[in-house]
Amino acid sequence: MSATLQEAVIFTKDQCATGLRAAVNILDKWQATTEQACRILRISRSTHARAKLRNPDWSVSLDADQMQRVSLILNIHAALRLIFDNPENTYGFAAMPNNNEFFNGRSPLEVMAQGDMISLYESFRRIDSLRGAQW
C-alpha cells in the first residue's frame, strides 16, 4: 500500500447517532425548521424525527458528507459560544439577518439551508472568523 493513500475515517453507528443528535439539538435551538435541518444535514425527515426521540438504543449510519455536515454545525456552535456570553445571542445569531457581504441580509440559517456543502462551509468560515484568535 502506498504511504500517500489516506485511510477513510469510519464512524460507528453509535458515534453517528451521538453526533447527529447533538447537531439536531443545536439546530432546534437555532430555531431551524425540520426542512432546514434536513437540508443542512442531508438527512430524511424520518431520520430527523428519530434523532430527536432520545432513544438510547437508536443508532444510524451516516456517510462522510453527512458527518462533515454534523462536524460543521458543532464547530459553528463552538465558535458562537466563544463569541457570545449570553444564550440569546449564542442560539439566536444563526436566525438573525446578517448584512455581511456573504450573507447579504439573509440569516446564516437561510444560507446553510440551501443544502449545499459550500454554503454550509462558507457560513462556518464567516462565523468562525468573528471569534478572532480566541481558540
Score class of each variant (00 low, 15 high):
Phe11Lys: 09
Arg45His: 11
Phe11Met: 07
Lys29Gly: 05
Leu72Tyr: 07
Leu74Ile: 07
Ile10Gln: 13
Asp28Tyr: 09
Pro56Met: 07
Ala3Trp: 08
Thr33Pro: 02
Thr47Leu: 06
Thr12His: 10
Arg45Cys: 01
Cys38Glu: 07
Val70Lys: 07
Asp57Gln: 12
Thr12Cys: 09
Gln36Arg: 09
Thr4Arg: 12
Ile26Thr: 11
Leu72Arg: 06
Ser61His: 07
Ala22Trp: 03
Val60Leu: 05
Lys29Asn: 11
Leu27Asn: 04
Gln66Cys: 02
Ser44Pro: 03
Arg69Asp: 01
Ser44Tyr: 02
Ala3Ile: 09
Ile26Phe: 11
Leu72Pro: 00
Ala64Met: 09
Ser44Phe: 00
Ile73Ser: 00
Ala8Leu: 13
His48Gly: 02
Thr18Phe: 12
Thr18His: 15
Phe11Arg: 13
Asp28Asn: 15
Ser59Tyr: 06
Gln6Ala: 12
Glu35His: 13
Ala32Gly: 02
Ile40Met: 02
Asp14Glu: 15
Ser59Trp: 03
Ile26Asp: 01
Thr12Ala: 09
Phe11Ile: 03
Ile40Tyr: 02
Ala3Leu: 14
Asp14Met: 10
Thr47Phe: 00
Arg42Trp: 09
Leu74Ala: 08
Ala8Ile: 13
Pro56Ser: 09
Asp65Gln: 10
Val9Phe: 08
Ala22Met: 14
Ser59Leu: 04
Asp63Leu: 01
Trp30Ile: 01
Gln6Asn: 12
Ala37Asn: 04
Ile26Gln: 02
Thr34Val: 15
Thr34Gln: 15
Gly19Cys: 03
Ala22Val: 08
Ser2Asn: 12
Ile43Leu: 06
Gln15Trp: 03
Ile10Gly: 06
Ala3Asn: 11
Asp57Glu: 14
Ser61Cys: 04
Gly19Gln: 02
Leu20Phe: 06
Asn75Pro: 04
Asn25Met: 13
Ile43Gly: 01
His48Tyr: 15
Ile73Thr: 00
Gln36Trp: 08
Leu41Met: 07
Gln31Met: 15
Ile40Lys: 01
Arg54Ala: 14
Trp58Ile: 05
Arg42Cys: 11
Asp65Glu: 13
Met67Lys: 07
Leu27Ser: 04
Cys38Ala: 10
Ser59Val: 08
Ser46Arg: 12
Asp28Ser: 14
Leu74Glu: 12
Thr12Asn: 09
Arg39Ile: 05
Gln68Thr: 12
Gln31Pro: 05
Gln68Asp: 11
Val70Ala: 06
Gln68Ala: 12
Asp65Tyr: 05
Ser71Arg: 07
Thr18Ala: 14
Ile10Trp: 12
Ala51Val: 00
Ala23Thr: 01
Asn55Ile: 04
Lys13Trp: 04
Ile10Pro: 06
Ser46Trp: 05
Arg50Val: 05
Leu62Glu: 00
Phe11Thr: 06
Ala17Gly: 13
Arg42Asn: 14
Ser71Asp: 07
Ala23Ser: 14
Ser46Lys: 12
Met67Arg: 13
Trp30Asp: 08
Trp30Arg: 02
Leu74Val: 04
Ala64Arg: 10
Ser71Tyr: 08
Asn75Leu: 09
